[in-house]
Amino acid sequence: MTRQKILITGASSGLGAGMARAFAAKGRDLALCARRTERLDELKAELQERHPGINVAVATLDVNDHDHVPKVFKELSDELGGIDRVIVNAGVGKGAPLGSGKLWANKATIETNLVAALVQIETALEMFKESGGGHLVLVSSVLGHKGVPGVKAAYAASKAGVTSLGESLRAEYSAGPIKVTVLEPGYIESEMTAKSASTMLMADTETGVRAMVSVIERESPRAAVPWWPWAPLVQLLRILPPRLTKPFA
């Protein structure tokens, strides 16, 4: 099924902007939201110049403003005449080692990546039920498979929660009319991974986005992306003793 009207949160940069460019090239209409309005406006101008046949709607959204999420989703849906795919992509990668005294950093990660994702999920489901169906995409992480030490501990926990929500939804809507995809990116070049220590496992942005969009278009239930090296590494992560997971953190 071709999803023509796609909403992406966290679309002003990184993988969100990359997916927007890829879907625009396929001729899809886009609803893009993020905190940084100027970047959204620049992206909209770029996409409409390159692909004049598409419609692009943008809106400022801080996903941690929970009351604002349904309002923005509705405004964007009204502007495009409906939404048939929502990509829950907004997230942060900051954090601190547990017990380091930086509760605020880990709390912000959990709130943005998991609690705000839940708000987006509930909003998208309500929209899809009203319209008769749709495709919900949750951007999780390969780190959702295993706890890791250091600064990524809260991040891994938040993504494990996102993956769990996605699995629950797949069971809930196994017969439709809502399709659910859980994306588990490995390390892909973006603003979020710019300071990552795992550079030897880093995929370039183009390769990563292409893999993500391919999985989304197939509406696959769940996938680690890019497949190489991350699908095999996920299997390894699952069986590694916790003390050996540090290279993935």
Rank of each mutant, 00 (worst) to 15 (best):
R170I: 09
M1K: 10
E46Y: 04
D29F: 07
P97Q: 08
V137E: 10
P241H: 12
L136M: 03
N89C: 06
P232H: 09
I87V: 15
L244C: 04
G14V: 05
F128C: 09
A17K: 13
V63Q: 14
K146H: 04
R28M: 07
T199S: 12
V213G: 09
I216K: 06
L43S: 04
A154I: 04
L138N: 01
A224T: 01
G16R: 04
Q48W: 00
K179N: 13
E130K: 14
E219S: 13
V137M: 09
R238I: 11
V69M: 12
M212H: 04
A17W: 08
A59T: 05
V88H: 00
W227V: 07
I239Y: 13
G161M: 14
E111G: 01
P226I: 12
V209Y: 13
M1D: 03
T37L: 14
A124C: 08
K146S: 09
G27D: 13
P247G: 02
G166D: 07
E46P: 02
T2C: 02
R210D: 14
P149N: 11
V180W: 11
E42S: 13
E217I: 10
E79M: 06
G144T: 02
K74H: 12
T37I: 11
R39L: 13
D41F: 06
G18K: 03
